[in-house]
Design a protein around this nucleic acid. Structure first.
Lengths: 137, 137
DNA sequence: CAGAATCCACGAGGATACTG
DNA sequence: CAGTATCCTCGTGGATTCTG
């Protein structure tokens, strides 16, 4: 996770399908969904699609997330066009979030990855047992 | 990417399929393949499967990667059981890497994610143009 | 050739406090 | 309620140097 989101004009290069470019689309996608909470937020929103969720509801549904990181994550997803924000102009304000069509389309490969993770992470864990990750602390 | 690889015994919790747990398998998988070079290395190895690649070859095929990060990335993948290491006991030594069956199985969802990235990252980039990520530098 | 070791910069993200 | 602002910690990863 080195590539900064605000990182200027160089990111345009990745658009030609050069997958070996460090700025290839896959790398840049992983810079997004690889952040700590993004995949969870997307998943929660996907489970409630096409309905909407409010900020506080998302907080409850993503246990452990800080209010700052939920805010930052949602802003990032909104700027990417993966989620849509709808503000109810009441006081206090009520803000609703939902996945866009683009966001929903991402759910498919993401679900595949989740499936793999649920199936094979235990095996990866076992492999790490066999190798020594014993007690370096 | 907060969760440390060497981080002790807490990672065992994610094994029961609680996807809302911050330590859920998906999050932990993304902690692995989300590191800067892992997905690229896996892809390069996958393209040459079932053949093997040497350290120096991998360096050439993954432009921009430092020798340290290639080493670290390969070690991590080896400990996870996603790649296999074969050392030719010559001098100087020749080390060959290839994806294991487990690693190859990961290639499938990973390829799906790549496909999505190639298709939709341009749209995400356009969305970011519309929103102002103008010139904060 | 294939690394291990060391040093260091930077950015993700947690905790806390404040606001419209 | 739904954020924003600030401070601070710590892990990722780059550069460099040394070794079997």
């Amino acid at each position: 996770m080195t590539t900064s989101r605000s990182g200027g004009p160089d990111q345009r290069r990745g658009e030609r399908g050069d997958l070996l470019d460090p700025l290839c689309p896959t790398r840049r996608l992983l810079d997004r969904i690889g952040t700590k909470w993004t995949s969870m937020v997307v998943k929660v929103l996907a489970e409630h699609a096409p309905g909407e969720l409010r900020f506080a509801e998302l907080r409850r549904l993503a246990p452990g997330i800080s209010q700052k990181m939920l805010s930052v994550t949602l802003q990032s997803l909104a700027r990417d066009g993966l989620v849509a924000r709808r503000v109810e102009p009441t006081v206090p304000p009520a803000v609703h979030y939902r996945l866009t069509a683009l966001g929903l389309s991402l759910e498919e490969p993401l679900a595949a990855l989740r499936g793999w993770a649920e199936t094979h992470m235990p095996e990866i864990d076992r492999n790490n047992q066999l190798a020594g990750e014993s007690s370096p602390a």
